[in-house]
Simulated scan of single mutants.
Amino acid sequence: MFSPEGPRLSELAVQALSSVERGYDLLAPKFDHTPFRTSDSVLDATVAALLESGPYGTGLDLCCGTGAGVDVLRQVCRDSVTGADFSTGMLEVARSRRRPEGPDTSWVRADARVLPFGPEFDLVVSFGALGHFLPSELPGLFAQVHKVLRPGGRFVLPVVAPPRPGSLTHAMLLGFDAVMRVRNAVWRPPFVMYYLAVRFGDLWHGLENAGFRVAFWPLPEFGRRRDGSPRVRLVVAEKGARRAPLTS
């Protein structure tokens, strides 16, 4: 699961016993060599879908980490791109990465639950960050995203179909979540990172309750499951009306 350039087991143990912020500060130099980073295949498929649905002017990568989502935005936004994260270490790595010509890019240290922006973005994306928020925090998070989008702006995030209950993958993720719950019950500060805490229906209804109109765009590159549902799709939440219709 980890490349030779990735963190050692001892480093992961120290990170897991830290706060989320401190843990990612420590992990940042090796984060891109872990399975926690969103795969290039998902990033590329997201770019393709957004290029078809644009154009977009300004973009925000929420919980940007080392900037992989910023690189997505730089391919689909014309005016400017912002990466926001509360880990100083992750932002330092993101800033240091060399990038080709593109729109102006800025980096902001910010808590996603209290974003320091007004309604100035046409597109907000987030990759692999929802597991760092408790279900009770999602309404506030979605309200923050709604606040920083212009009318007609979109909040887009890829979601992978959950593993079938009883499968090995489901058992592994369930076990991981159980270990994290025990860790957080006996150790402070907490490290919030769960894979199965946010259910698809809760995500859908939470976005609608925040004022979004929600659609789901299958990413055909990943095929479909036996029941016909997409293996990977984009959740596309729109604020208000937009020139192009929102289709699924």
Rank of each mutant, 00 (worst) to 15 (best):
E11D: 10
P162S: 12
L174P: 00
Q144V: 01
A94C: 11
P35W: 01
S53Q: 11
F2S: 08
G175P: 08
V125N: 00
R224E: 11
H132L: 08
A171W: 11
R213V: 13
P55E: 11
F117H: 03
V70T: 03
D227N: 12
Y194C: 01
F200Q: 07
H205P: 00
E101G: 06
H132N: 13
E5F: 09
P116F: 14
F216K: 10
E137D: 14
V236P: 01
P29I: 03
S136Q: 13
Y195C: 03
P29H: 05
R225G: 05
E238P: 00
R37S: 14
L149A: 07
P103Y: 12
V198D: 10
L149D: 07
F86M: 10
E137W: 01
P165Y: 10
V125P: 00
V232S: 02
L134S: 02
K30R: 13
R224Y: 05
R225I: 01
C77I: 05
V159W: 06
G201W: 09
Y56D: 00
H170E: 10
S96H: 04
A13D: 14
S39W: 02
V159R: 13
H33F: 13
H132V: 08
T105M: 04
P158V: 11
M180L: 07
R97C: 06
L134R: 11
W107V: 12
V235P: 00
V156T: 09
R242E: 09
P7L: 11
G175A: 12
T247M: 07
G57K: 07
G102D: 14
M180Q: 15
M90D: 05
L60N: 06
E120Q: 13
V192W: 03
L130T: 01
A84L: 13
L50Q: 05
P165H: 12
P190K: 06
S126T: 13
Y195S: 15
V179D: 10
F127W: 01
S248M: 09
A237E: 09
D44C: 01
R181D: 09
V76D: 12
R199H: 12
L196N: 12
T46Y: 00
G223L: 14
L134M: 09
S41K: 07
L168I: 09
S229H: 05
R37V: 02
V93T: 12
L60D: 07
F155T: 02
G131M: 06
L246M: 13
L51H: 01
R150A: 14
L174E: 15
R181M: 12
R8T: 10
V232R: 09
R224S: 05
V160E: 15
P103L: 14
R231H: 07
E238L: 15
L157F: 15
R8W: 05
R183I: 10
A241M: 01
P189S: 12
G89C: 11
F200V: 05
T247Q: 14
G23F: 12
V159Y: 07
S41L: 13
R233P: 00
G240K: 09
R225H: 07
C64I: 10
M90T: 02
W187D: 08
V108S: 07
L17R: 15
L51Y: 00
A112R: 03
L203R: 03
D111N: 13
R243I: 04
L50K: 03
T82L: 06
A185G: 15
A197T: 04
A171K: 04
V156N: 03
V235C: 14
E120D: 09
V124F: 05
V156K: 08
P245R: 10
T82R: 05
